[in-house]
């Protein structure tokens, strides 16, 4: 279990996280949603150990995250930030293999790299330098790097948590879907996935559980069917929202009609 207990993080006088508690179990997908500035990325940073919370605790399988060395932490969880560095001089396949610990044998490492590149559909351009790739391709290469790190951790008996921040923002529809497939695959393997999303349709499709955040707090903590309802999310996003259920899928979009704001 990866859990936050009453975590508070402040930037100056602003509270980015205000007593947030949440939990991620292996084999489940938790989507973190909410408007800009709600504290979603800060929550991911606190859970991943990169940020020391001012108050509260973050535990990974019972161990305090900030007590673990970066090496140990990297075996237990993989994380991908919202805007990974584009200007990386390495080829896609070198990038993907970069974070595999040296304890993994070269043949195993190669196998993991191939699997990760295949998962994000980058095999054809594996030898192209990352800074020459398009924005979406570069983002997928970084996602593959996180997967490679996760699977390396699993090879060594860990690797049960994956945290990704807005992985679909720069992707076309086909590759948004491939990210969804990746998340489903790693969940099937027993990995817990925490995913920050703006796309509520995707969140509804992918998540076992939804955390809706606003102003540094978790305001709704529920299953997607219960959380994603216009009456609940409209006050949080402060905008009219349409939810359509069709063929066992929930489609969520802002209400773009010109008279929507008045009528809601």
């Amino acid at each position: 279990m990866l859990e936050a207990r009453e975590v508070t993080v402040s930037f100056g006088t602003k509270r980015a996280l205000d007593g947030v508690s949440c939990a991620l179990a292996p084999g489940e997908v938790v989507a973190v949603i909410g408007p800009n500035g709600a504290g979603k990325s800060t929550l991911l940073a606190a859970l991943s150990g990169v940020m020391n919370p001012g108050a509260g605790r973050v535990l990974i399988d019972g161990d305090e995250v900030n007590d673990l060395s970066p090496e140990d932490l990297a075996l237990r969880r993989a994380a991908l930030e919202q805007t990974p560095v584009r200007d990386v001089p390495y080829t896609a396949e070198t990038l993907v293999g970069l974070t595999i610990p040296t304890r993994i044998s070269p043949s195993e490492a190669r196998e993991i790299v191939n699997r990760a590149l295949r998962a994000v559909d980058l095999e054809d351009i594996r030898t192209v330098a990352v800074h020459r790739l398009s924005g979406g391709e570069a983002h997928r290469a970084h996602l593959a790097r996180s997967l490679a790190q996760l699977w390396s951790g699993q090879t060594l008996g860990y690797g049960r948590y994956l945290m990704i921040d807005e992985p679909t923002a720069s992707l076309d529809l086909q590759h948004q879907r491939s990210v969804l497939e990746v998340v489903r695959t790693v969940r099937q393997e027993g990995t817990g996935v925490l995913i920050v999303l703006h796309d509520l349709t995707l969140a509804a499709a992918i998540a076992d559980w939804v955390l809706l955040m606003k102003a540094g707090r978790v305001v709704i903590d529920a299953a997607p069917d219960d959380a994603i309802q216009p009456g609940l999310i409209e006050p949080v996003y402060e905008t009219p929202i349409v939810v359509v259920r069709k063929d066992a899928q929930m489609i969520v979009a802002p209400d773009y009609r010109s008279n929507a704001a008045q009528s809601s």
Partner: peptide
């Protein structure tokens, strides 16, 4: 050398990858 390689990903990603930055 490995630390320098990882630092090319930026400080945060280097930390996520297991480097004591």
């Amino acid at each position: 050398t490995r630390a320098l390689d990882l630092l090319q990903l930026g400080e945060r990603a280097a930390f996520y990858s297991g480097l004591n930055v």
